[in-house]
């Protein structure tokens, strides 16, 4: 299982850079209000070059074509590192499935024509010479943007869409999926956090975002994450002697010991 960091709203750039420096697989942009998601994620992307950037995108109100355009721009600005956590909010499973499907069609390299219960694209409202299809551009940098689901109807929508659900509890993990993401709150106490993270690994999670407690020093906390937690869930029976032995000596520089 791999670990990622859930970022604090307003601090996405420095938080993401720290997560990358600590070797985590990715970050979760989780805090911002609807409309600020892609803005906040772009800050995380500009501060990093390697971490995957999962962004919680709130569905239900804004047109999926507009949301798809934002994510496509963001994915190009992030060199193809975006994962969308589609938060279905108050949508029921059928509505959520429609919105997510429309997002994916906008990202696909085909013109879009969609007639559903919530949306019609193109709308055909201006009559006579309205187009039959539209091409939503630019395309994301990735061939297909990974989509994970979140929200009340996520599990039911997942049955229709075949997409992973970002789990809130280890018992919601599906070990038959190649990708099973989760989100856990850490306490800052090593033994408790070991137990929490280990339970997710045992439940079959593959990508677990850790949310650090408020008011804690992120840089310091990430030392514990990268030194103890990540290795311990990164292989069966990690030999703890490696993490518990002294850190290799710092290079003193030439001439310092003369």
């Amino acid at each position: 299982m791999r670990l990622g960091l859930a970022l604090t709203a307003g601090d996405e750039g420095p938080g993401a850079a720290l997560a990358e420096a600590h070797g985590l697989f990715g970050v979760l942009v989780d805090g911002p209000a609807a409309g600020a998601e892609a803005v906040a994620a772009a800050g995380a992307a500009a501060a990093t070059e390697a971490v995957r950037i999962a962004v919680r995108l709130r569905l239900g109100h804004e047109h999926p074509v507009t949301l798809a355009e934002e994510i496509a721009v963001l994915d190009n600005a992030a060199n193809g590192r975006i994962v969308v956590v589609a938060d279905v909010g108050r949508l029921d499973a059928a509505e959520a499935a429609e919105d997510v499907t429309l997002l994916q069609r906008c990202w696909a390299a085909r013109p879009v024509r969609h007639e559903g219960i919530r949306w019609r694209v193109p709308a055909g409202i201006d009559g006579h010479d309205a187009p039959e299809v539209v091409e939503v551009t630019p395309k994301p940098a990735q061939v297909a943007v990974p989509v994970w689901l979140a929200g009340a109807a996520a599990a039911a929508a997942s049955e229709r869409l075949g997409l992973p659900v970002l789990a809130d509890r280890p018992e919601d993990c599906d070990r038959d999926r190649l990708v099973q993401p989760g989100l856990v709150d850490l306490t800052g106490a090593l033994e408790a956090d070991r137990g929490a993270v280990g339970a997710w690994r045992d439940a079959g999670a593959t990508h677990l975002f850790v949310r650090l407690p408020g008011g804690i020093d992120i840089a310091e906390s990430l030392v514990a994450v990268s030194r103890f937690l990540a290795p311990e869930v990164g292989m069966p029976s990690f030999p703890r002697v490696i993490a518990e032995s002294a850190t290799p000596a710092a290079w003193p520089g030439r001439g310092a010991g003369a």
Partner: peptide, 22 residues
């Protein structure tokens, strides 16, 4: 702009964000 073959930027706020970040 939107729906143009050249990918003319359709979402200015994330584009502005990437500039402001650097």
């Amino acid at each position: 702009h939107h729906f143009f073959y050249d990918g003319y930027c359709p979402a200015l706020l994330p584009a502005a964000a990437t500039m402001l970040a650097v």
